[in-house]
Amino acid sequence: MNFEELLPILAQSTGETLQMVAMATLLTAVFGLPLGVLLVTADRGGLTPAPAFKAVLGAVVNIGRSLPFIVLMVAVIPFTRLVTGTTIGTVAAVVPLTLGAVPFFARLVETALRGVDREVVEAAQAMGARRLAIVGKVLLPESLPGLVAGLTVTIVALIGYSAMAGAIGGGGLGDLAVRYGYQRFDTGVMIITVVLLIVIVQFVQSLGDLVARRLDKK
């Protein structure tokens, strides 16, 4: 295949990858952040102690974390159909991507929040702050650099997952690599997609590092 034929296909695949990752990232943040907060506040001695709830939540998160993505993707096909009405295409791929990334990100959020000095949380309690204010004005702002770093790692993981999702009909660069590079033995296409994925990952990681560093006032 010559370059002129390849270019629009590459552009489309890159667009699909970015779309999948962007949508999945947004949803992961929306669901993963509160989940991570709950993992911390539900601790015995946390802001809203609920040890039994926390144990269940932790177990669910661990199950989500231990399933290989490829298995998860297949396992949630009925759910994907329920949510999106289809099981192939970019939008359908967002469902397993999100389900795979939420537990991962939630653990990273948990770790970041645990890094907040206990004395600072207590100081806020001593001032008469509501629990919601402690989460919103202390825990989250104080751990923001860690949260950004966690989100960056999550996006990078999502880019990797998205290539896998692509292979079973999600589109994107992974799909391209498999269709042309593997099935048609077109090594050139394979190399180009790999390089593109590397560039995207590098860009995301550098940007994330930069933002996290800017936010860190310590």
């Binding site: 000095d117 004395e119 202390v138 702002p141 104080e142 923001l144």
Partner: peptide, 10 residues
């Protein structure tokens, strides 16, 4: 507090 307990982000 002994270790001040200030919000480092503010």
């Amino acid at each position: 507090h002994q270790h001040f307990a200030l919000l480092s982000s503010r």
